[in-house]
């Protein structure tokens, strides 16, 4: 009996949390952003986007290089090392770019967002905004949300581009794949709508999920040091799981059925 009560209470609590998350997002986005809030968004793009740039570029470069190395050793057995370009480009654009960016973003920017908003709550900054007749949803949540939505697809595109250049570095400059076939086979295989645009759509969905989870976990955290640390951990865990799960669904929708 106790077990069922427990499960029931947990489930109701989770559903209520989803409801609160929805209301929070609605409250933040229901109104048109004011002009002076644009600068706040620009500053948040700096915090979540620009400051994640280094980790994204370095990861993209190395992942591209590793894929070229791995792909070359497999493809060369079939004499198909010319297909290295399409292999690297397609894996990056369709999967690794959006997914790895989202995972890194959750760890780098998502956790910081949660901790920042949680601490703002703990130090009564959110309450004090409210008492100053400034809506914290519009002032604090909305700029961070938009910054995440703008930054993540941009980071994913940069990640893929750097990865492809990294693949070129190893495949062409080091292992001696023909540069012409690296680019031209890539060009004849990669399709703008199917591969590039779908990758960007994926990364927009991930941006929504990761930013939403991160902001909500901070906003809904228990304002103690323990509560904030728990919220930060949950942000990384939940958003990583959500990204991987959604990636499967989106891949099935985009590429699975022809």
């Amino acid at each position: 009996m106790n077990l069922f009560q427990h499960i029931g209470r947990e489930t109701i609590g989770k559903v209520a949390a989803i409801g609160r998350a929805g209301l929070m997002l609605f409250g933040a986005l229901a109104s048109l952003p004011k002009l002076k809030n644009v600068y706040l968004t620009v500053r948040q793009i700096y915090v979540v986007g620009v400051q994640s740039l280094l980790i994204i570029v370095v990861s993209g470069l190395f992942i591209g290089m590793v894929m070229a190395l791995q792909g070359y050793t497999i493809l060369v057995d079939y004499g198909a090392e010319g297909s290295l370009g399409p292999m690297v480009a397609l894996s990056l654009l369709r999967e690794l770019g959006p997914v790895v960016t989202a995972l890194l973003f959750a760890g780098r920017a998502g956790s910081a967002l949660t901790a920042e908003i949680g601490l703002m709550k703990a130090t009564e900054q959110l309450s004090s905004l409210e008492m100053m007749a400034v809506d914290p949803l519009r002032r604090v949540v909305a700029p961070r949300f938009w910054a995440g939505m703008i930054s993540m697809p941009a980071l994913a595109v940069i990640f893929s581009a750097v990865g492809i250049l990294g693949g070129h570095l190893v495949g062409v400059d080091w292992l001696g794949v023909d540069a012409g076939s690296y680019w031209s086979l890539m060009q004849s295989t990669v399709e703008w709508e199917k591969d590039v645009i779908n990758g960007v759509i994926k990364s927009l969905v991930f941006a929504l999920v990761v930013t939403w989870i991160a902001i909500f976990k901070g906003y809904d955290s228990i304002p103690t040091s323990e509560g904030i640390s728990k919220a930060t951990t949950e942000t990384v865990v939940f958003s990583s799981l959500a990204v991987l799960g959604l990636d499967f669904v989106l891949t099935a929708l985009m590429f699975g059925i022809e």
Binding site: T123, E124, Q125, S127, S128, E130, M131, M132, A133, D135
Partner: peptide, 17 residues
């Protein structure tokens, strides 16, 4: 929100940004 502009609150921690 209009009423809150006429009141203000000093929080325990100060709550400075």
């Amino acid at each position: 929100y209009a009423a809150r502009r006429r009141m203000s609150m000093l929080f325990q921690s100060g709550a400075l940004f």
